[in-house]
Computed example of a mutant assay.
Amino acid sequence: MADKHAETWDFWLNRLSPAFIEIVLSEPLQSPEGLCDFLGEPDEENLALLEEHCTQLAFPEYPVSQEPPGIRWFAGPDALLRDDGRMVLSVRARTEQALDRVGPARNAPSPGKPRP
């Protein structure tokens, strides 16, 4: 290329890096094996508990092209949680105990996956 600056990653980093982070974080939540669950639509109380007891990851709420609420990520004790626009919560845990700590919403059936 004639413009050597155009060959650098500078123009891609503000879009590409978040996309890679999204892939890495989302992949474990979709695992057919492991300690994953779909928690359904959170109410205001559950959202307040999530924000109080878990740490929001230092990752911007996205997509940035739309107004909030967007997708947010949280880490709790041995758990990764994804809040999709205050409409759906998903979780991946390291242990059954951590999955149980997520809350009573876990007792609801997950789409396509009956509860034991």
Rank of each mutant, 00 (worst) to 15 (best):
L89N: 08
G112W: 02
T8S: 12
R86Q: 15
P32F: 01
G40N: 05
V88E: 12
P68Q: 08
C54I: 00
P111M: 03
V88S: 03
E61K: 04
A79Y: 06
L50S: 03
F74E: 07
W9N: 07
N46R: 07
E45Q: 12
A58D: 15
L13I: 09
T95H: 05
R101V: 00
G70C: 08
F74M: 06
P109L: 01
V88W: 01
Q56M: 13
A2W: 11
A93N: 09
D84L: 09
P68G: 06
S65K: 06
P116V: 00
P63M: 12
N14I: 09
V88D: 03
G70S: 08
P28Q: 07
P42H: 11
H53V: 00
T95M: 04
N107K: 14
S31E: 04
W12Y: 14
P18Q: 14
C36N: 11
H5K: 14
L35T: 03
G70Y: 09
P104W: 04
R92P: 01
C54E: 00
P42T: 12
P69V: 13
P111E: 02
A19D: 12
A75V: 14
L80M: 14
G34A: 05
L35G: 00
T55I: 04
P63L: 11
R94E: 14
S26V: 02
N107G: 09
L49T: 01
L29D: 00
E52P: 00
V64P: 06
A98V: 01
G34D: 08
H53F: 10
A2F: 12
K113T: 00
P111Q: 03
I23E: 11
G70I: 12
G70V: 11
L89A: 05
R15Q: 13
L81N: 01
R72K: 15
A75D: 03
L35R: 11
A6M: 07
L29K: 01
L25G: 10
A58N: 13
P32K: 04
D78G: 07
N14A: 15
F74A: 06
G112L: 07
D84V: 02
C36E: 01
V24Y: 10
L49I: 01
T95Q: 05
A2Q: 13
G85H: 03
L35F: 05
E51I: 01
L49H: 04
A2H: 13
V91I: 12
Q56L: 05
P60R: 14
Y62H: 15
V64M: 15
M87L: 11
N14L: 08
L39G: 02
L50W: 07
A2Y: 10
K4H: 09
R82K: 15
A105F: 06
Q56C: 11
P60N: 11
R115C: 02
C54T: 15
G85T: 10
P111A: 02
M1K: 04
W73F: 13
E52Y: 06
E96M: 02
R92A: 10
S90W: 06
L47Y: 04
D37S: 04
T55L: 11
V102Y: 06
M1N: 07
H53K: 12
G85Q: 12
S26T: 15
Q30M: 05
H5F: 10
P63E: 13
R15D: 14
D37N: 02
P28G: 06
P69I: 14
P116Q: 01
E33S: 11
L80P: 14
D37Y: 04
K4E: 10
F74H: 12
A79F: 04
G76N: 07
H5T: 07
P60M: 08
L80R: 13
T95A: 06
